[in-house]
Amino acid sequence: GDALLPAPQSISILSTNMKHFLTWSPVIVQGATVRYSVEFQGEYEREYANGSWIPISECSLTTATVCNITEDISATVAYKLRVRAELGATRSPWATTKGFFSRAMTSLTPPELRVVADGHHVLVELADMGPSFQFRVLYWKKGQESRVQQRGMKDVSSVVHLDTMEAGAEYCVKAQTHVEAINRSSSFSPTQCVRAQGDTSVWL
């Protein structure tokens, strides 16, 4: 009975900032609810465990056409993913990702950065992106682009004091993320400049 149900098509992996999702096109059967099951295979399973596959329980018999595989893609090795359709006892053939996926292929976006002048102090706030991420913040006094200073940050749960400004000076800041597990960095966020004037800051 397996051959009656076609395998899911357009199977692909979307990966941004170390969050990885498997997606596929729905299998349409009039008047019926088709379900799907997903399995993964790391390099270890291929090379040392007879090419075995491991089911992802959160995506077993799901009606969704997307599966969060982040938890299982947890080593920097080559993975394969596969999905099949199921309707009652009928199962489709497996649809397997072409080529391999490694988390090193994830796309890294610049961090969300907020820069505030508080009196003579430059404060920065970075959106938390998860335990894999560190941040590299560059800052300089406008006009002194050759004297850029940098700060590495890991814990970004609160606002961070970056520097104390000279009165009336303008300071510019930009940031990028770094993921040590894959040894890659994002591009820089747009530069933001602030100038302290008393208690209120002026966005330029």
């Binding site: 993964f40 790391g42 390099e43 270890y44 399973e45 090379e47 040392y48 465990a49 491991i54 992802i56 329980s57 938890e71 299982d72 947890s74 080593a75 090795v77």
Partner: peptide, 11 residues
């Protein structure tokens, strides 16, 4: 799944 994660990390 966790054993797979550890095994692939060891590899």
């Amino acid at each position: 799944r966790k054993i797979s994660s550890i095994a692939n990390s060891f590899l």
